[in-house]
Design a protein around this nucleic acid. Structure first.
Lengths: 199, 199
DNA sequence: CGAGTGATTGACTTAGATCAATGACCGTGG
DNA sequence: CCACGGTCATTGATCTAAGTCAATCACTCG
């Protein structure tokens, strides 16, 4: 969820703040759910780790975003929340949130819209994963993340993070970007990628 | 969404029924959203088709399920809905649904829970797609779809459908299943797969 | 009966995973 | 202040699993 504007002031105040070091876990899969998290600073990533240790990127919440909305309706967490950077988060207890959602149709509507948005986002990710060629997958990502000018993509986090996000090894991503640069399709500069022609 | 129990009787009555032939589209990406669909019989699949014609499976709604919940909060559809079998659906206009959600906290809660459930479902799918080896991916699917006895998986639809669902070519799926059968890990019979040892 | 689709298997190719090595950079503790 | 450990970025070599192309058989539906 992008923002938690719909959260009434009294609930916001009731929150408990917690700080996390990079790499620290906010919660782990299987633990009982306690409430909604609001990221105040830094970045927290939702990931699943399977038996063989492979990590699946699920979602990344930056400052202002919320985490674990879906867990409000589930007794336990189904993924891990790991701080990607040093971060501080605020926890709003489950009961308080559910109460607000029950009482305020506006809050409920905003929450539903946010969930619906997430569903669409996840579907987009799923669509991207279905693209076989690394080049096309990267292109799909770039096309959906260009800024207002239609050619600039601002990257958040490291390329390694982007690689897991895209479901590629970091090597494959580096090579793909290198090839695209060589082919003149993109130009890289720091944390930005510029497309040679608008999408 | 599994069921639409929360839909008040008066809204249900107001719905418009439509029948679809196999392969027919209920709506297409880009069209303006009109409301919530309730599948009365048959199966409707949500898919996205990319530029090269590749199809991404997003969701499949059987009799009793609903479709396009997320679209209630979006002006246009972001995927195609295609009848996987002959089907009949009932359409509840957007305005009527939003009104119910605004007025009834119970309905809203059920709807939110359903959306949250969908979010978790999609995350599970995403996790599965991150598994590289076809064998492990199939196993992940089987493990999460065993019936009450812990060893039987009831398949819905064709193996080809399952293949797209898993993000594999149908050939790869056939081969993987054949290998697993040969290795004695599973046993197939009609539309069922039995695991040799419980998960 | 013929068209269309699903299920299945074979042969071949290739893209990306894997393993490996290097240089740049960054924070930190002595 | 600098050496050291850690991570990121990058590139090379190799390997293999899955994609692609292709053919066959069974089945169903009109």
């Amino acid at each position: 969820m992008r923002d938690a504007d719909w959260l009434p002031a009294e609930v916001r105040k009731s929150g408990i703040t917690r700080t996390l070091k990079r790499g620290e876990a906010l919660f782990r899969s299987g633990e009982p759910t306690v409430g909604l998290y609001h990221v105040l600073s830094g970045t927290v990533r939702l990931v699943r780790v399977d038996g063989s240790g492979r990590e699946t990127f699920l979602y990344s919440a930056d400052a202002g975003g919320t985490l674990a909305e879906a867990s409000l309706f589930s007794p336990t967490y189904h993924c891990d929340a790991i701080a990607a950077t040093a971060a501080s988060v605020r926890l709003y207890p489950k009961a308080a949130i559910l109460e607000v959602l029950r009482r305020s149709p506006e809050a409920a509507r905003a929450f539903m819209a946010a969930l619906a948005h997430q569903v669409m986002d996840l579907r987009t990710q799923l669509e991207r994963r279905n693209i076989r060629a690394a080049r096309d997958r990267v292109w799909h990502f770039l096309a959906l993340n260009v800024g207002a000018d239609g050619v600039t993509v601002q990257l958040h986090g490291s390329l390694k993070d982007l690689a897991t996000d895209l479901g590629l090894t970091h090597e494959a991503l580096y090579r793909t970007l290198a090839r695209m640069t060589a082919a003149g399709e993109i130009k890289r500069s720091g944390g930005k990628i510029k497309l040679s022609r608008p999408v």
